[in-house]
Simulated assay, not measured.
Amino acid sequence: MMKSTKPVVAITLGDPAGIGPELIAKLLDTPGVTEQANIVVVGDHWVWLEGQRVAGVNVATQAIAGLSDVRSRADSSRPAFLSVATIKPEQVQLGQASADCGASVLQVLDRCMDGAQAGEVDAICFAPLNKHAMKLGGLAHEDELHHFAEYLGVQGYFCEFNTLGDLWTSRVSSHIPLKDAARMLSQERIVSAARLIYQSLQASGHPEPRVAVAAFNPHGGDGGMCGREEIDIIAPAVRQLRDSGFPVEGPFPADTIFLKARDGLYQAIVTMYHDQGQIAIKLMGFSKGVTVQGGLPVPITTPAHGTAFDIAGQGTADVNATRNAFQIAARMGHSASQARDQATSNH
């Protein structure tokens, strides 16, 4: 019996009260999806059935007892399904954030990360979750990325990437008050963010990405008249990167750099704080954007939009961003699988 050579991608159903289950049902009903990866859906069986009902589809899956069974399957033409019992139907109210739903999401994600640490999973793609519900359910961090990093024992730099087609963005600071963004700026963090997004783009199939670095202040600081962060911190970081051989340019005023990136001059932009990049990316393609959790030992992706509680259960959710998130997970999972196999062969 020959096992599948495709990367193993674990897919979660997201918050049971949101549009996640419906989106995953639509994704796996899309022709060609199972050709890209050896897929395993992880979640409560009743939530999966409900997602299919809302989406109006019927997806054939293969039940498995554990994530260790996925890679050895002879036939990966249909998704595997790992049933976990985390929540009961009476604990879920559609469109409402709750501790029960948040705890369910955390339990499923942790199960997938356990599989990644055991070498059973090459990438994870999770359907939309709700940070408020997760905090009610026990999340001890500001967001899921910091939970992932602690759970996986990450010691180095990590950050979220937001992607739209061939354009990726990273940010030096993320889910913090805007008044604290300036003190988070440092040459080291900017260098780390640029290096990480460059290497992650390569892992996703872009061999030579060009990276731009955004300024922090209006008009790029106007030569120091409107702030000195560009002179004292950002420009030195760009010089350090270029001296190290990275194709990085900047700093560019943040209100114009996205026009150049939109026209294909750059594949990545390092932004200085959350909304500096998020507003532009979401305006250019809200229904297509993807969030990639950068700097982790396993690729983790998700659609950039949220749980859309206002349309949960209606069957109208747009699957485009979820499909894009899965495709990035599959590509990066393939790269991770190849790297692991190469390391094994060297030993």
Rank of each mutant, 00 (worst) to 15 (best):
A336S: 15
F258G: 00
L152P: 09
Y266R: 00
K282F: 11
C125Q: 09
A182L: 14
A80H: 07
V92E: 11
F81E: 03
E208I: 02
P79F: 10
V42I: 09
S173L: 07
T169M: 10
M113D: 02
A261R: 01
T61R: 12
A118G: 05
G306S: 12
F286E: 08
P31K: 04
M2L: 13
A63R: 09
L67S: 10
D44C: 11
A336T: 14
E188W: 06
Q327K: 14
L241P: 02
N130T: 15
G32K: 07
N217R: 00
L49P: 01
S4F: 04
H334F: 12
V105H: 01
I257T: 03
L67D: 04
G264V: 05
R71N: 13
A116V: 08
K3N: 14
W168A: 15
R73A: 11
R195G: 04
V92R: 06
V108N: 02
L152Y: 09
K288G: 06
M1Y: 11
M134P: 02
I234R: 01
V172S: 08
Q52S: 11
V290F: 06
I19Y: 06
R53V: 09
R228M: 15
P79I: 13
Q314K: 15
G224R: 08
M184P: 01
R73L: 14
S287T: 15
A254C: 13
S4T: 15
A97W: 00
R189W: 08
S170V: 05
L49G: 00
D29L: 00
V319L: 08
T169F: 09
W168E: 01
L28F: 09
P21T: 12
V108T: 14
V213N: 00
F246Y: 15
D44Y: 04
L106A: 13
G306P: 08
G245W: 00
Q155Y: 02
Q52M: 13
K26E: 01
G137I: 11
H147D: 11
A203M: 07
I300Y: 14
